[in-house]
Design a protein around this nucleic acid. Structure first.
Lengths: 354, 354
DNA sequence: GTGAAAGCGCTAACAG
DNA sequence: CTGTTAGCGCTTTCAC
């Protein structure tokens, strides 16, 4: 292809408005030291010529790049896309992140990075060198990956750790996993459940532990025993199947199960069906994440919503604020999650109605 | 934030390798006119220092930006994201497009643009000016939007029109809507169906018409009448409900229905259920697109897959080829679609078994 | 408040 | 085959 040049540059605007490049630059960047009259004149030229600054040039001269990178786990993301089961983590991130970005003239660029790879560092550094982003959003499980966090800490680039509670470098934004697990458990307790099983997610994700904590806390708060009610899963359907089978096959099975994600809840539903248990009459189920599949199950699943869009939006806000040198919130930013009621919860049948 | 500079630049590499900037540049760009020995030496320095070229700087000097923009319809995309029904068009595009991009050191940037807006031009031009992309991917309904296509034609930027048959500027890549509608219709005919209804999609999308054409052609080819078997929808669930109701409430209702997308197929399934029709025994259904929801219906839907990932991947290939000045394919590039068999098709019951 | 000069990191064009 | 020079479009100094 032939060499392409910017159609209309700051020079054209300057000439058109009869001012120096500098003044135009000041208007673009909304600097205060320009007389209103000048500003108006320049702005008029900008509008007339349809001038838009080149991000590359802005970045070159040491200014912002107006690019924010969202780092997701490569393996998991690709697997989800290929499975076509409707997992919409990426979509929700784009919904929240992209829209907030475009409000401020930024763009969000998705990057897939391996968690396990021995060249995570190289991959990330390469993305930073190539793109010179103004900020980076880390998603689980990267958010608590020490290697990544330490690396970014040396880079002078503001970064947000989504779904993280941990202190340290970067700005943590929590989706309140512990609190919402507690809420879900309380929700079941209020409806009379006493034996509430919990299917945990992959230990590779810290949020798995937090969700367990929330469940434990709520159970303890109601004076209930957790013994034999915790089963380990890894977020996959198969692991949910195994966990649900173990839980429901025990001597004193739960009357309700909380699954740490929708796939495992779906598996639980199927295991229940195979065992002749009606949901919600014989078994209540609450799932986590509230991905699209909850609409399509029979019955539709009551679920703890994972507020990904709101969190991504907040992450972008924080990065832009940090970029501008604004004051950041002191403590942990928490985006709270709500329970979306559908058809998979009812009071327990039989004698243990409280 | 403090002003950030590239950590390691072409200068560092040049100094380290004891050569000129230009030679390093040549190695980076894989130009043939460098001795193997030099190349190796420079490459060694690059690896040692972990050097990655800044795309901003590359773009500045009139070279490639390594950025490809994927333009999607804003309204529809946001609506899909918010509905959380599992529509995974964007995901599939990213799956195909991003991965192919990263094979070649490119990045894919998603842009949402209004189809209807009177400032489409400004939006697009702004994105081009800001990003200076090396290529643009247009998706339906933008692919056949004359305003957009004409605009891009003046921009010397290679662009692909996904899901388009039309000639004119840009590189059309078809997902074989006409052919796959024909295949789906033939598939039903082979199984003995004679009255095959068709629910059309929104006329705003050209593919809607092509799908109708495919159905008509197949019906005509088998000597079957289309009279009273076509119902207009607009891709929404509600429109599918209305269309299915009309079709199934007619005097001589179809024994099979092809819906132009999954949402309308889902609606058809529900209408059938309400009318006491069993699927597939009393009514066969084939849907289009093969989005995630087809897994979750009862029965799971047999569907024509829309090969979005493969198409996006091909689009990126074509853009990179065009960018390099390579020969492009002569005619229309067609990515063929297959039928994914699930549980919603059976031979018709009753007398009209052929 | 506004302008002029210098330079960001890289590649195109031209020398040698 | 390799090096030198100029300049991309913009912002950062620093003058006025």
């Amino acid at each position: 292809m032939a060499r392409r040049r910017q159609a209309v540059t700051i020079k054209h605007v300057a000439a058109d408005a009869g001012v120096s490049l500098q003044t135009v630059s000041r208007v673009i960047n909304n600097e205060p030291t320009v007389r209103e009259e000048m500003k108006a004149r320049v702005q008029a030229s900008i509008d007339r010529l349809g001038y838009v600054p080149s991000i590359a040039a802005q970045r070159m001269s040491g200014s912002r790049s107006y690019l924010i990178i969202a780092v997701n786990d490569r393996e998991r993301t690709i697997a989800d896309w290929q499975a076509r089961q409707g997992t919409d983590w990426v979509d929700q991130m784009l919904l929240g992140g992209m829209l907030k970005c475009s409000e401020h003239g930024y763009r969000l660029i998705l990057e897939l990075v391996d968690t396990h790879s021995d060249h995570v560092e190289r991959e990330l550094l390469a993305a930073i060198a190539a793109l010179q982003p103004d900020g980076i959003i880390l998603t689980p499980p990267h958010s608590d990956n020490a290697q990544i966090v330490d690396l970014l800490a040396t880079q002078r680039i503001p970064f947000v750790r989504i779904g993280s509670h941990q202190n340290g470098a970067g700005i943590p934004v929590s989706m309140d996993d512990e609190g919402s697990a507690r809420t879900a458990t309380d929700y079941l307790i209020e409806r009379g459940h006493r034996r509430i099983g919990f299917i945990a997610g992959s230990a590779e994700y810290n949020l798995s532990a937090w969700r367990i904590d929330g469940w434990r806390t709520a159970m303890a708060g109601a004076g209930l025993d957790c013994e034999g009610l915790l089963a380990q899963g890894d977020f996959s359907y198969a692991s949910g199947e195994a966990a649900a089978t173990a839980l429901l096959g025990a001597d004193n099975p739960p009357s309700a199960i909380i699954a740490s994600n929708d796939q495992m809840a779906l598996a639980t539903l199927e295991v229940a069906r195979l065992r002749g248990l009606r949901v919600p009459e014989d078994l209540s189920i609450i799932s986590f994440d509230n991905t699209p599949l909850v609409h399509f199950t029979q019955p539709p699943l009551t679920a703890v919503d994972q507020p990904i869009a709101a969190t991504a939006s907040k992450a972008v806000e924080l990065i832009i604020a940090a970029q501008k040198g604004d004051e950041l919130p002191d403590g942990l930013t928490v985006i709270s999650a709500a329970i979306v009621e559908r058809g998979s919860v009812a009071p327990p049948s039989g004698a243990d109605i409280g």
